[in-house]
Computed example of a mutant assay.
Amino acid sequence: VIYANKISLFPIGTLLYVGIGASAGKVGYANENGYSNQQITGLIPLNCYSRFYFYYLSALKDKIRDNAFFTTLPIINNAYLGQELIPFPTISEQHSIADYLDQKCSEIDELISIKQQKIEKLKDYKRSLIFECVTGKRKV
């Protein structure tokens, strides 16, 4: 956020929303205080749980991006983003939903990591097999 040549610090919990370019619509969550460039909009949730809205905006990424103003690149400005209707469940519901999604997404990420490791081992085996066959070290 820039105000009259003053750069403001985004606090922990700020949602970092990409508003322009190939990554428009992507959302991140600030685990630390930080700054950004003008392509990132800092959304500082007030009276709500930012992890819930991180998941909400992540789920709507394609919808918002597809309806964004386009020239050469998609542009999601603050006025457009401000028109998006956002649900407002109770704080306890927001925490429950976000905590559940944190747990499930973590489990899924772990499974993905295990599968990626297996894929890398199979790729290594494939490269090794090709090398051995073309160099005559393995009889076909």
Rank of each mutant, 00 (worst) to 15 (best):
residue 43 L to S: 05
residue 30 A to S: 09
residue 16 L to D: 05
residue 24 A to E: 01
residue 22 A to P: 07
residue 47 N to R: 10
residue 31 N to R: 14
residue 44 I to F: 14
residue 24 A to K: 03
residue 18 V to L: 08
residue 38 Q to M: 09
residue 19 G to M: 04
residue 23 S to M: 07
residue 32 E to I: 15
residue 20 I to C: 02
residue 43 L to V: 04
residue 32 E to W: 13
residue 44 I to Q: 11
residue 37 N to L: 08
residue 42 G to F: 02
residue 20 I to N: 07
residue 35 Y to E: 12
residue 32 E to P: 07
residue 27 V to W: 02
residue 33 N to A: 14
residue 18 V to G: 08
residue 40 I to T: 09
residue 16 L to A: 08
residue 42 G to K: 03
residue 24 A to T: 05
residue 38 Q to Y: 05
residue 47 N to C: 10
residue 25 G to Y: 00
residue 45 P to A: 08
residue 28 G to V: 04
residue 34 G to C: 10
residue 18 V to A: 08
residue 43 L to C: 05
residue 16 L to I: 09
residue 25 G to P: 01
residue 38 Q to G: 11
residue 39 Q to K: 15
residue 17 Y to K: 04
residue 33 N to T: 13
residue 24 A to M: 02
residue 39 Q to N: 15
residue 27 V to D: 01
residue 31 N to S: 13
residue 46 L to S: 11
residue 44 I to E: 14
residue 20 I to D: 01
residue 33 N to S: 14
residue 26 K to T: 14
residue 22 A to Y: 11
residue 32 E to T: 15
residue 43 L to I: 10
residue 17 Y to D: 03
residue 40 I to G: 00
residue 20 I to P: 04
residue 27 V to G: 00
residue 23 S to W: 06
residue 37 N to W: 04
residue 43 L to T: 00
residue 31 N to F: 10
residue 33 N to Q: 15
residue 45 P to T: 02
residue 17 Y to Q: 01
residue 34 G to N: 10
residue 16 L to S: 06
residue 26 K to D: 14
residue 21 G to I: 04
residue 41 T to G: 09
residue 17 Y to M: 05
residue 31 N to L: 13
residue 37 N to F: 08
residue 18 V to S: 06
residue 16 L to W: 02
residue 36 S to Y: 13
residue 20 I to K: 07
residue 19 G to T: 01
residue 40 I to D: 02
residue 44 I to N: 11
residue 25 G to N: 02
residue 21 G to Q: 06
residue 28 G to F: 02
residue 35 Y to M: 12
residue 46 L to A: 10
residue 44 I to M: 13
residue 26 K to V: 10
residue 33 N to C: 14
residue 36 S to C: 15
residue 23 S to V: 07
residue 29 Y to H: 10
residue 33 N to G: 11
residue 17 Y to W: 09
residue 20 I to Y: 01
residue 36 S to K: 11
residue 40 I to M: 06
residue 16 L to Q: 07
residue 23 S to K: 07
residue 27 V to K: 03
residue 41 T to A: 12
residue 45 P to S: 07
residue 32 E to V: 15
residue 28 G to Y: 03
residue 43 L to M: 09
residue 46 L to C: 11
residue 40 I to H: 01
residue 26 K to N: 15
residue 33 N to H: 13
residue 19 G to Q: 01
residue 19 G to A: 07
residue 47 N to Q: 12
residue 16 L to P: 01
residue 45 P to Q: 05
residue 40 I to Q: 03
residue 35 Y to H: 12
residue 28 G to N: 03
residue 19 G to F: 03
residue 25 G to S: 08
residue 28 G to R: 03
residue 16 L to R: 08
residue 29 Y to G: 09
residue 34 G to W: 07
residue 18 V to H: 06
residue 44 I to P: 01
residue 42 G to D: 01
residue 16 L to F: 05
residue 35 Y to P: 09
residue 19 G to W: 02
residue 22 A to D: 12
residue 40 I to A: 02
residue 46 L to V: 13
residue 35 Y to N: 14
residue 25 G to Q: 03
residue 21 G to F: 03
residue 17 Y to L: 05
